[in-house]
Write a protein that binds this DNA or RNA. Structure first.
Length: 699
DNA sequence: ATTAGGG
DNA sequence: CCCTAAT
C-alpha cells in the first residue's frame, strides 16, 4: 500500500535518515495528507481544484508548507507548519490545519456528482491494486509498506477512530482524529454527511515531529507567532508578495527544488518523476506511480529558503484573513498557485495551457472580487449621522442610557459663515469606535474573563493597524490627494454628512473567539449579545447603512449596549458618523475554522471545592483508592457535570498537599482537620498498596 | 477515553 | 485549572 514517509527515506542506513535530517533542519512539523479519489475526470468537472492541482505537482518546500498535488486520481497535500520549541499549541494548531486541508480535499471529493461515484470506486480499487502490485514487484523487500499508516478505502466504513502516534522521530506527538466523520466535517460548508462513507476517498496522514534543536535559528516566519499569527498563515503569505514571483518560482528554482526532491527518492523513480515534470496527461500512469512512491520530505533548496526568509520579513507577512482560523485547502492552493493577480506567472516553462487554466481558476474563485466586495461592504457599513441626530444625542445624554454616540456640542469651526475658504476646520473626535469584533464566550465565563477577551480582541484589531476612512454623504472618499474643498467635504464652510470610520489595515479577519453559548458581537454600532447560533453568517444585523440618520439612529437605540464606545466628532455642522467595518469574510469562513481559533481559549471558571465535596471525594477515594478517578467520578460526582475525573485527581493532589502543610499556609475555605487527617491516612494506605503491587509485579 | 504528572 | 504524554 502506501509507504510511509519515514520509511521511505530510511534507505540511507548511515545514521540518521534523510527525513530526520530534513525535519531537523526545517525545525517543523511535517504533515502529509493524501487524499484518494478515483475520479480522474473530476478535473474537468471540477476545475477549481484539479486545475490548480495539476500544476502544483512540484513541492514548494520552504519554511512553511508543502502542498504537492499530483495529476492523478489520488491527490496528496502536505502542510508543514513551523513550530517553536516546545510549542504545544503550535502542535495542535498544525494538526488542525492538517485536518482542515484533509477535510477540504475530502470535500472536494464529495462534491463529485453521484453518477460518478461508482466509477470512482472501481477506479480507486484498481489503483490501489496497482499500487500494491507495483510495490510488491519493485520494493517489496523494503520496509516501505506500513499498513498501519494507511487507511484503505475498505476500512472507512468501519473506521471510527484513527490515531497515529509516529514512532520514527522519537515523537511525542499523538494526533487523534475522533472519527472519519469529524474529518469530513472539518470542511465545513457543504459538508455532506450522508456522502462521507459513500465516496471512494481515502485519507491518511502522518505526523512527524522534528526535533527543534535551536529556536534561535527558527525560520523568520515563526516569529509571527508572537503576535498570535499562525505560523502557516505567515508563511503562506510569503506567496503574496508583490515582488516578482519568478524570484522563487522561476524554472531554475523549480528545477533545483525538483532536483532535491528527486534526490530523496529512490533513483529508479527519477525517470517517472521527470516525465511528470514534462507532461501532464500522457504520462498519467507514470504520474500515478510517482505519486505512489513519493514518500520523502522535500528539502527546500537553501537558496529558495533564504529568499523566502527574506521575503517573509517584508510587510506582506500577514496573510489574508480567511487563512487565520485554519487554512482552507482552497486558499492554500490559491496561494501556492498564485492566481490572486499579483503573481500571474508562476511557471516560465512555456506551458501555454496554464494561462487558460489559470484564468479559469481566477474566474471560478473570484478571489479578487471577493476582497473587493469585502472592502466595499466595509465602507458601506459606515454610518452617517447628520445634524438631525443631535436631538437624539441630547436625549441620550440626558437619560444616560444606551447612547452609542455622543456628539460634541461645541462648534468646531466658528468661522463657517465668514466665507473664508482657507479657514482651518477643527474636528474633534472624542473617541473612535473600534471596528467590528467578534467574540464568543461561554455564559459561565466570568466578567473578568469577558473583559480580558474583549481586550484581546481589541488589541488584535488595533495591532492590525487600522485605517481611517472618510465618508461624505454616505460615499467613501478615496482620493487621498484631493483637498477638502475639492472633494466637497468642506464647502462654503459647511461640512456636510462627513463621516469617519475605522477600517482594518488589511482586509483581515479579526480572529474571533468562540466556544460558547453566547456570542458577544460588536457590530457596527455597539456590542451586542446575541444568542448562540450555529449559523455561518455573522454579518451584523445591519442591512442598510446609508439610508440616512433616522434608520441608523433607530438601529443604535434598538441595540442593547454593552460598551458605549463612541466616535464622536464634531465640526461646524455637527455631522458625524459612527465608524463601522464589516468583515465580510466572516460570512464566508466556515464556523469550523473560526471555532478553531485557539488563541484565546476560555479558561474554565474556577470553582473551589466545597467541604462537602471534599468529604465526598475523600470517601470515594477511601473506597476506591487513588488511580481510579473515573470510578471516583462516577461514584461521587456523577451529577457534578463540571467536575471531571481530572479535576478530582487534581483536587486530591492538592488535598494531600494541603494536609501536609501547616494550617497557616492553607488557603481557601478551611477544611476540618479530621478530613485532612483522613486524606493523609488514605493517601498513605493507597500509596502502600501501590508499592506492594509494584513489588509483586516486579517479582 | 483515562491516567499520571508537571506547570 | 491547564496541558500533555502515555496508555
Amino acid at each position: 500500500m502506501l509507504p510511509r514517509v519515514s520509511d521511505r527515506t530510511d534507505t540511507d542506513r548511515s545514521g540518521a535518515t534523510k527525513t530526520e535530517e530534513l525535519v531537523q533542519k526545517n525545525q517543523g512539523w511535517n504533515f502529509w495528507v493524501v487524499c484518494f479519489h478515483g475520479d480522474q475526470t473530476q478535473s474537468e468537472k471540477n476545475p477549481s481544484l484539479k486545475d490548480m492541482v495539476s500544476q502544483t505537482r512540484l513541492e514548494y518546500g520552504f519554511n512553511g508548507y508543502q502542498v504537492p498535488v499530483f495529476p492523478r486520481a489520488s491527490r496528496s497535500a502536505r502542510v508543514r507548519v513551523p513550530i517553536r520549541k516546545k510549542s504545544g499549541n503550535s502542535q495542535r494548531r498544525a494538526f488542525e490545519i492538517l485536518v482542515s486541508v484533509a477535510g477540504e480535499l475530502l470535500r472536494e471529493s464529495n462534491s463529485v456528482p453521484e453518477d460518478q461515484q461508482n466509477a470512482r470506486k472501481s477506479l480507486v480499487l484498481k489503483e490501489q491494486e496497482d499500487e500494491r502490485q507495483s510495490l510488491k514487484c519493485n520494493i517489496s523487500d523494503q520496509e516501505t509498506c506500513d499498513e498501519k499508516t494507511f487507511i484503505s478505502y475498505h476500512q472507512i466504513d468501519t473506521l471510527n477512530k484513527f490515531s497515529y502516534a509516529p514512532d520514527r522521530f522519537n515523537s511525542k506527538a499523538c494526533a487523534t482524529l475522533k472519527s472519519f466523520d469529524q474529518l469530513a466535517n472539518v470542511s465545513g460548508r457543504n459538508a455532506n454527511p450522508s456522502a462521507e462513507l459513500d465516496i471512494s476517498s481515502v485519507v491518511s496522514w502522518e505526523i512527524s515531529e522534528g526535533k527543534v534543536e535551536d529556536a534561535g535559528t527558527e525560520p523568520s516566519i515563526i516569529r509571527t507567532s508572537k503576535s498570535e499569527t499562525p505560523p502557516l498563515t505567515g508563511s503562506l503569505d510569503v506567496l503574496q508578495m508583490d515582488s516578482s514571483p519568478s524570484d522563487i518560482f522561476c524554472s531554475d528554482s523549480k528545477a533545483s527544488m525538483f532536483k532535491d526532491w528527486i534526490t530523496l527518492c529512490p533513483s529508479r523513480h527519477s525517470d517517472t518523476i521527470e516525465s511528470v515534470n514534462r507532461d501532464d496527461d500522457k504520462n498519467y500512469n507514470r504520474c500515478t506511480q510517482a505519486a505512489t512512491t513519493l514518500k520523502t520530505f522535500r528539502l527546500p533548496s537553501n537558496a529558495a529558503d533564504q529568499r523566502i526568509k527574506n521575503l517573509s520579513s517584508s510587510r506582506h507577512w500577514r496573510v489574508s484573513p480567511n487563512l487565520n482560523g485554519g487554512a482552507s485547502f482552497r486558499n492554500v492552493l490559491a496561494h501556492v498557485t498564485g492566481y490572486d493577480g499579483k503573481r500571474r506567472m508562476i511557471f516560465h516553462d512555456g506551458r501555454t495551457s496554464y494561462s487558460r487554466q489559470r484564468s479559469k481558476r481566477i474566474s471560478s474563485f473570484k478571489r479578487k472580487d471577493f476582497f473587493n466586495q469585502r472592502q466595499f461592504t466595509g465602507s458601506d457599513r459606515g454610518f452617517q449621522f447628520d445634524n438631525r441626530f443631535n436631538h437624539a444625542d441630547k436625549r441620550s445624554d440626558g437619560d444616560n442610557s444606551s447612547a452609542a454616540i455622543r456628539v460634541g456640542s461645541s462648534i468646531a469651526s466658528p468661522h463657517s459663515h465668514l466665507g473664508s475658504r482657507e479657514r482651518n476646520v477643527k474636528l474633534r473626535i472624542k473617541s473612535f469606535k473600534v471596528p467590528e469584533l467578534l467574540v464568543e464566550i461561554p455564559t459561565t465565563a466570568t466578567v473578568g474573563s469577558l473583559k480580558r477577551t474583549v481586550m484581546e480582541a481589541v488589541s488584535t484589531a488595533l495591532g492590525d493597524g487600522l485605517h481611517v476612512g472618510i465618508l461624505l454623504q454616505g460615499k467613501k472618499v478615496r482620493e487621498d490627494s484631493k483637498t477638502l474643498l475639492q472633494t466637497g467635504i468642506s464647502r462654503d464652510g459647511k461640512h456636510r454628512n462627513l463621516g469617519f470610520m475605522l477600517e482594518p489595515g488589511h482586509p483581515q479577519i479579526i480572529p474571533p473567539l468562540c466556544l460558547g453559548e453566547q456570542r458577544i458581537t460588536r457590530n457596527a454600532t455597539s456590542f451586542t449579545i446575541e444568542p448562540g447560533t450555529s449559523g455561518v453568517s455573522h454579518v451584523p444585523p445591519v442591512t442598510s447603512c446609508n439610508n440616512g440618520a433616522e434608520s441608523d439612529l433607530h438601529l443604535v437605540s434598538s441595540l442593547p449596549n454593552i460598551s458605549a464606545n463612541t466616535i464622536t466628532l464634531l465640526n461646524s455642522q455637527s455631522v458625524l458618523s459612527i465608524p463601522a467595518i464589516s468583515v465580510g469574510a466572516l460570512a464566508v469562513v466556515p464556523i469550523h475554522h473560526r471555532a478553531r481559533c485557539r488563541e484565546f481559549v476560555q479558561r474554565r471558571i474556577r470553582r473551589p471545592f466545597s467541604v462537602s465535596e471534599v468529604e465526598a471525594l475523600v470517601q470515594a477515594v477511601e473506597k476506591l483508592g487513588t488511580g481510579r478517578w473515573r470510578d471516583v467520578k462516577l461514584r461521587a460526582f456523577d451529577n457534578a457535570k463540571h467536575r471531571t475525573y481530572v479535576d478530582l485527581k487534581d483536587k486530591w493532589k492538592t488535598l494531600v498537599h494541603t494536609a501536609r502543610i501547616s494550617p497557616q499556609q492553607r488557603r481557601g475555605e478551611p477544611l476540618p482537620q479530621e478530613l485532612l487527617d483522613r486524606v493523609l491516612a488514605v493517601h498513605a494506605y493507597w500509596s502502600q498498596q501501590q508499592a506492594k503491587q509494584l513489588l509483586e509485579s516486579g517479582v
